[in-house]
Simulated scan of single mutants.
Amino acid sequence: MKNLNIKDIAKIAGVGVSTVSRVINNHPDVKDKTRDKVLKIIEEYNYIPNNSARNLKRTDSKNIGVLVKGIFNPFFAKLIQFIEEKIDEEGYSMILHYNDDNANDIEAAVELIKEKKLKGLICLGGDFTSLDESQLVDLDTPIVLSSTDIIEDANRTFFSSVIIENEKAAFDAVEYLCRLGHKKIGIIATGQEDRCVGRLRFEGYKRALLKYGIEYDEGYFEIGEYTFESGFKAMNKLLDKDIDLTAVFITSDIMAIGASKAILSRGLRIPDDISIVGFDGIEYAEYFHPSISTIKQPDEGLGKKSADILFDLIKGKKNHEHIILKTELLERESCKKLI
């Protein structure tokens, strides 16, 4: 028989993973009948808890991990700065790890916790939509997911999160263009196949079009990959279609800057010929010429709140929390009102 994990024991016992965890850790808030049933199954199947993982929290490690998705988005640099300040203040050390775009984020998080014997982990971005709660229970290490997407039916008792409403923020950006009189609005995004924030921003774009009676046209969409180069290439593809765009919503400022470069390199003007709205609120967008209108994410709030929650968990002060922060539309020079 294969080595059973805590999820297998829970399934056999007909209880939740958290209940099995409480039995294993001798927590008092379990009914005697349930406790006896779980212990009997554990004995029957000779289940041995993953002590090497469960004991990570009890080691003398003073390391806090920060797992970052990709290496190209400077938006995360600000978050890391605020997180590192809190880690230093608490007398811990930060271990920073960048995860490849094609790598499995959940596996990378688990591996980093085990390898570095982390006291806690903050994940910036990434895909955690298929997170298995048994992985977190076995690790017994506080995790905060920041600036990513949390699916509605996720068991939120095993992790914390600090996020924004990506769909609403994208809706606000495109609605702004619609109110300016634009109807031929393109989009550069990671697409509907993106299971993280890219998908939500794409949905926000389509919802805004629907509200203003504009039919979604797939020809107005191109895929980008959160880099300057991909924004540049995607914008050139849109321009090659000759579809008389008057505006483009781009789901990251990095891609928006690349797209703006493509527009200007063709002798077109921003915003006279094409209006641009980005997403993130990074400093580069403010100092690009013309300055790019964008959705500003609360970088300080995301960074500081993520770190505060993590240390509250480490100190046992609070249970897991789930915070949603507000975004802000910054109106700059890259958008024009149509007559």
Rank of each mutant, 00 (worst) to 15 (best):
G278D: 07
G278M: 04
G278I: 03
F279T: 04
F279V: 02
D280I: 00
G281E: 01
I282H: 02
E283L: 10
E283C: 01
A285E: 01
A285N: 01
A285F: 06
E286W: 00
E286V: 06
Y287K: 00
F288R: 05
F288I: 06
F288Q: 03
F288A: 03
H289E: 10
S291D: 07
S291C: 06
S291T: 05
I292A: 02
I292E: 00
I292V: 05
S293V: 00
S293P: 04
T294A: 03
I295C: 01
K296H: 04
K296F: 00
K296D: 03
Q297K: 09
Q297F: 02
D299H: 12
D299Q: 13
E300T: 00
E300L: 01
G301C: 06
L302W: 08
L302C: 09
G303E: 07
G303C: 12
K304F: 00
K304M: 07
K305N: 14
S306M: 07
A307T: 12
D308L: 09
D308C: 03
D308I: 13
I309N: 07
F311T: 07
F311G: 09
D312T: 10
I314S: 07
I314K: 10
K315D: 15
K315G: 06
K315F: 09
K315V: 01
G316S: 06
K318Y: 06
K318H: 13
N319F: 05
N319S: 14
H320N: 15
H320I: 06
H320V: 13
H320W: 02
E321M: 13
H322F: 05
H322E: 12
H322R: 11
I323R: 14
I323P: 15
I324D: 01
I324V: 15
L325M: 12
L325C: 09
T327I: 06
T327V: 07
T327K: 10
E328H: 10
E328G: 00
E328K: 15
L329P: 12
L329C: 11
L330Y: 12
L330R: 13
